[in-house]
Design a binder for these strands. Structure first.
Lengths: 175, 175, 175, 175
DNA sequence: AATGAATGAGGCTTCATTCAT
DNA sequence: GATGAATGAAGCCTCATTCAT
């Protein structure tokens, strides 16, 4: 989607505020003020407060596509698992806000589902099959849990020694 | 805290609605209606919408104390880890809503911190020290991540074969 | 419907403003100001701007019931026609605003229909049958048209010699 | 007034929407969309939303002039009355929307007056004088009322047997 | 303790209108 | 002539909270 400068200002202001205060607790007027545009403009470009959120979701999907595709395309089983494990540890700190918003929104009932990760889960399962794990279904489920837990920890309190945690984590998959 | 019946009605209605629609998106009037009390009563008993949330948090703390204490009091290292791992898998489904609210609130900046888990983390670290793990700090951090990830998965989409996942999970701590 | 004083203030202010400026062109804030209440109160009592209008309609229906019933209950054919003809000429000037609003609303598509007059039309038809008119259907239709036309003229520009007009009008039904 | 095609599109869209939803309830943006032109163009051509309405009024005046002139120019008294009576029954159904708008606008205080009909009223009065009616003033007033009533009925609910009603109506003026 | 009428601030959205292109 | 981005005021409505009863 091509965007004017003001449209991008709105989107970024919204992302920032939604991530920090929550979607419901952020008023469109606050977004407008932060983006330095008139409140009306938000609605001309995004139709709705919800449309604004949807635009953010789309932006995230766009940004994520490449890295998820890379995982799904990887053929070496060990590498697949390693890449998934590394995922949360390699989030660009500039994108923390964005991900905090995504994770926060997961808890809103009417929110967009996590089915985006389905292909990754499949890739993980295949990898576990190849590696001869006993229960590939449970293992892939577990791996995604791990990914979620790690991302949560990183986004919420940025653990002191991320490197060490990643090493410990990888250790669990060295038999 | 001793509560009248209406107080409890309010508290339960609030918990239910906050968990389902989010704290900010739930109006006190909706809570009043759901609890079948007048709008004013909420403020007489809990002073604030925030006070209502605080009361819920207190209730949760009360409910959690026992089980966390049990972990901290456990002396056998292997058992400590096992008990922590089992934690999310043994949540009473009646309490799902409650925990969903807790997890959702974590992402709100002005929200109450997760320092409640600090003692558990310490217990885990001690256990890893006893068991001779190379990096007990990273390991305990990782264990709490796991706990978070598992809880998230269970609360959000209730995985099909929880038993198998728990077994796979415990497998990671059998060397 | 029992009403508090403020409720009545709102209703009257709304009637006045809707009649003078039109329903769509009257803002709820103007109504609140005219009624000297907070804007929110309108919505507590009437739910909607539309609910406010509906309440006015109900009030009008209440006020009109008696006089319409009187016509329908009249057995003498000539009297029925005379009473219908007199209807617009005997509107209480205090009710002009009310009726102006009713007539204005007739032109709004989504508005309440004129089926309230159906019983009156039936009564007229019966009267014309009794009196041996050739086409009672057309005659009753015409009578209601007359009623409408007269009411419109009276409400919109208050003709100089109403008495004379009424006499001329009655003259049309003396054969 | 000479008009470009787009100007005409705007005018017709406005007429349609104003007639169906009311002037105040129709936004200029809806008009623009219906006319398939940009929002700005309305203001370039008609200056105002009000200017748009004024242009419609002018168009109507233009359309009406001929038929009203015909009545005023008629010398035979009986024919004058007959032509006036026939007026509402001979409205081109294609013009119903237009007339609905005109009649709806009559009830708005700040709206254009009905003095357009003054010459017709005069013609009627003269006719009644010629025919020796007792009170020509009241009779002409009454005749215009009738015209209004008939037009209202036709525009609002299109009576089933218009022909019969017209005959009944004419009957009132055959002594 | 309990109600629900009342408030005023603020929420989301639409509006008429302007202006750079 | 024509577009559509941009504005700020206003519109309808909901909110948290207070208060008289």
């Amino acid at each position: 989607m091509v965007m004017t400068e003001k449209q991008e200002n709105i989107l970024h202001a919204a992302l920032e505020l939604f991530a920090e205060q929550g979607y419901a607790a952020t008023s469109t007027s606050k977004v407008a003020k932060a983006a330095k545009v008139s409140e009306g403009l938000i609605f001309r470009h995004f139709k709705n407060k919800e449309g604004l959120l949807a635009a953010i979701f789309e932006m995230v999907a766009e940004k994520t596509k490449a890295v998820l595709a890379d995982i799904v395309m990887t053929t070496d089983a060990k590498q697949v698992i390693e890449k998934i494990l590394e995922l949360p540890f390699s989030i660009d700190p500039n994108d923390y806000r964005m991900w905090r918003l995504m994770y926060a929104m997961k808890w809103q009932t009417q929110s967009y589902s996590t089915e985006k990760m389905e292909p990754v889960k499949m890739a993980a399962k295949n990898a576990f099959v190849k590696l001869g794990y006993k229960n590939p279904d449970a293992e892939s489920e577990l791996l995604l849990m791990l990914l979620d837990g790690a991302a949560t920890a990183i986004l919420l309190h940025e653990p002191e020694d991320k490197e060490a945690v990643l090493i410990a984590l990888k250790g669990k998959y060295k038999h």
